[in-house]
Design a binder for these strands. Structure first.
Lengths: 343, 343
DNA sequence: AAAAATAATTAACGCGCGTAAAATTTAAGT
DNA sequence: ACTTAAATTTTACGCGCGTTAATTATTTTT
């Protein structure tokens, strides 16, 4: 191993017997040099551990191999999961992911994009807030850097969007709930910033119409990202008041449902489809913890991996072709019903 | 605003009427130039938006202002919370935090440190795995870069450690449980990689002795980071078999407790201290979701903010004094009892 | 107001690497 | 073995900024 410390590519060229420009080519793309040369380089590499200075490399290269990943809130396990999948996809493709959380704050999203700009990323994978995001800012940013959005769409902005088909998901759930018991009421926040919430409400209305039932939407006040708390306090009030028209509630997302389950427990209302149960509660997203709620939460699972990989590979395609998409792409994956005890 | 694009410091010097070396000084430390000069620079800055190229800056500066933050698993809300606090502390002090998750994989921890090395960080804040971490590797790394560990200690390695006083925490909980009902059994994994787990077991033994009760430790098999699952399946088996000697179980951490609560629910065992309850379950850490379990989890809260800030400021002290600590520091914060319905 | 102290300017070099052009070597093809 | 094509080496410049030394301008001191 390491005989003496190599300070730069010049010195490594000396000890390896390969010229610096060839080494430079190799580090940019190992396959761009002849096999025998590559082997000589790699032999030397295992002997003298040397790595090009990232800062010098990135200063001189037009485009770096950095990929910015921005998610609204890493404290939400949903985003930490999908963020991780995206990260892995980037690394597998030889890029350097830089994962940033906006900490539930749309202003931080702007800050994050601004910091990313300084890093001259080859591309950005963005899970935006939706309506709360600064559309103009993102549009401006995506002029300079190719951006693929995932999870939440911003109509007409960025190269492509990859997400879940909310209509298919809600339809699946509504169909199941109607078939197995009373038709569901819909529980959500009054001012959801996430565009998925709006699609889900719309999908609920359409699905209920299709099944010939009257829809019942309950919107509750509440700001921020404390969904469980909102679900617990506001959902609890509704349950206590007997405000739900049927014995089944479909929540706009799992975190609201988790809050409602907690409130139902407090109220002594047994949730589930077994005997003695007075309420069914269902969620959406298959939150990592929904398997451990009491009772375990019936929900719709999004295909995290598929979304992450498709978003990443779409971005890589744009980067590697050096050409923006002629037409904006939208890809939606289907969700699957996860039947547990709560509904 | 932006009249024409400024490509480098040279051009900004031209339009601002300030020489380049002075600008360089300013960007390194705004207070190092005369007030009148500073104002002229900032006036120009608001007109021509220019920012120094990070790569060129970091290539030439001896030490960057990057701070590496490495946590074992961002998918665990505990670490995403504390990671966020650390991040904020770094930004507040004018550093650039780079948050990396080891995804529950000790090998990834080595990879993360290796990637950080390339970024020449001024310092690193590391929440290690503990025994599962590569002690030698971390020791070697901390020779080159000042490292402060937090959450989990590695005896004798790195400049300093900041964490929670497990003995005080467990003592607090044991005292409460003994005073309010039957003394607790202790539930944990057989091979916990986290050193806190070992301290907690030890603390449990001492606390029980002090109160004059016989300790009962139940260790269950299970690998990895699926603590809820392990708590549910293995804890469930123990509950079903009536293996716990008393009606009170103290879990090594909240995530195990969440799993146990879920299993207890399945078994129809009512958990809590009210009437009709057959079991009390307590956790440790005040996991963000433990407020919404059924019943809500009684636990010990760590002072996330204090730990994060102390770890960060200790590191900044070392960086700014350019001198390593003569003696390794260990700081422990006290936990507080969070009484909820489960125990 | 002149002298002393402080700050800014000019000029120039270096950091580590990308990259281009020309010269040279190596491999492939018949 | 000879021609061609492909790969490598030599040489040299540029990227954007840190930094230093000598010079000049500005402020502070008495």
């Amino acid at each position: 191993m390491g005989e003496k410390r190599i300070r730069n590519m010049e010195e490594f060229a000396a000890v390896s017997g390969i010229s610096r420009p060839t080494l430079s080519k190799y580090f940019n793309d190992p396959d761009s040099v002849r096999r025998t040369t590559r082997e000589r380089i790699e032999a030397a590499l295992s002997q003298y551990d040397y790595r090009p200075n990232v800062y010098a490399v990135n200063q001189n290269r037009r485009k770096t191999r950095n990929i910015g990943i921005v998610v609204p809130n890493l404290a939400d396990p949903f985003f930490s999961e999908i963020g991780r999948e995206v990260e892995l996809a980037c690394m597998a493709a030889g890029y350097s992911p830089i994962l940033l959380s906006s900490h539930g704050n749309p202003a931080q999203e702007r800050v994050n994009l601004e910091s990313l700009r300084a890093l001259k990323p080859a591309g950005v994978l963005l899970a935006p807030f939706g309506k709360a995001s600064d559309r103009a800012d993102i549009e401006r940013f995506s002029k300079d850097v190719p951006v693929v959005t995932f999870d939440a769409n911003i109509e007409g902005v960025c190269e492509a969007f990859v997400g879940t088909d909310n209509f298919q998901c809600v339809d699946l759930m509504v169909e199941y709930l109607c078939r197995s018991g009373e038709p569901p009421c819909f529980f959500e926040m009054k001012t959801p910033s996430n565009p998925n919430a709006n699609k889900r409400r719309q999908a609920y209305l359409e699905a209920m119409a299709r099944h010939g039932f009257a829809p019942h939407i309950h919107q509750v006040p509440g700001e921020g990202w404390k969904f469980e708390e909102i679900g617990a306090t506001e959902g609890g009030k509704l349950m206590a008041a007997g405000a739900f028209e049927t014995d089944t509630v479909l929540c706009s997302n799992d975190r609201l449902a988790i809050g409602m389950l907690s409130a139902a427990y407090e109220l002594g209302m047994q949730v589930g489809h077994g005997k003695g149960c007075v309420l069914r509660i269902a969620g959406q997203d298959d939150h990592p913890f929904s398997r451990y709620t009491c009772p375990p939460l019936t929900t719709i699972a999004q295909d995290y991996g598929a979304i992450a990989n498709r978003a990443a590979s779409t971005l890589f395609g744009i980067i590697e072709n050096e050409t923006r998409l002629t037409e904006r792409e939208e890809t939606l994956f289907e969700g699957t019903l996860v039947m547990r005890a709560s509904a």
